[in-house]
Amino acid sequence: MNAATERLAVRLRGLGAARSQFGRACVILVPYLWLAVFFLVPFLIVLKIAFANIQLSMPPVEPVVTWTADKVLQLRLHFSNFSFVFGDDLYIAAFLNSLKVAGISTVLALLLGYPMAYGIARAPGAWRNVLFLLVVLPFFTSFLLRVYAWLGLLGRSGPINDLLLALGIVHEPLQLLQTDFAVYLGMVYSYLPFMVLPLYSAIEKLDLTLLEAAADLGCRPTKAFFTITLPLTKEGIFAGCLLVFIPAVGEYVIPALLGGPDTLMIGRVVWDEFFGNRDWPVASALAIVLLAILTGFVLLLQRVQSREEEA
């Protein structure tokens, strides 16, 4: 290649690089734009309402920013909504109970999801795809319909009670609906795929020769699971737990349909404030507090994880 063509090639390569950089920027830009429009803007609206005062109108809130008659731009932030939220035991209890229900559901989903993911990841090739498909199959029908299906299944004259009666295990139908049991069942059932998928990808990536190496060094299979497999699939466990825990804390449909009247969860409280009391500001304040709690939670987990990586 002579000098001129070489220079041309370099310039063309530079041009190509610039173009691919532009392309990359576009690829990143689109999801961020999406998030800005459909997450950031609604979030800002909710934040604004959380600082507004209630009034009888539509929407039932006073504007936060007003332009007064004597030409003053007024920003009035009512912190009373937050003090109201923190001042009422009901809300605190709802938060705590939501965290508890979500936490227990997450642990149950992990205990159930890990062996599932493990089984799928270690299944022979053809089976793996079938099993994987079965995990995502529920997504093919509506979430709401699936929760309704549980209403039928768990009802006093549903198939589960019928079976228990027929087997003579119980003599009168069990009250399964409107119980905490039904809520946990619904939660674990609905969010299990979100646990299984990240776990599956973590377990599948695990190099099996590491387990052979452990066995070779005198480690029994169960111990190897705890010293090798579990630590090396930690990322999957973290991801799965977050994917289950976060939506579970704010879950509304499952406690509303399957839970009893005393199942106090923050999602339901927000709904009641919003639609029952038409108290948008308190509902928004609750939503903001929930978001803050969850964000704090995620940040904490990330800190723990990155510190472990350094060590």
Partner: peptide, 14 residues
Amino acid sequence: PYERPVNMMFQSYA
């Protein structure tokens, strides 16, 4: 393997 008086050095080191 975990009871054999044998150790192995793996090709990938593992």
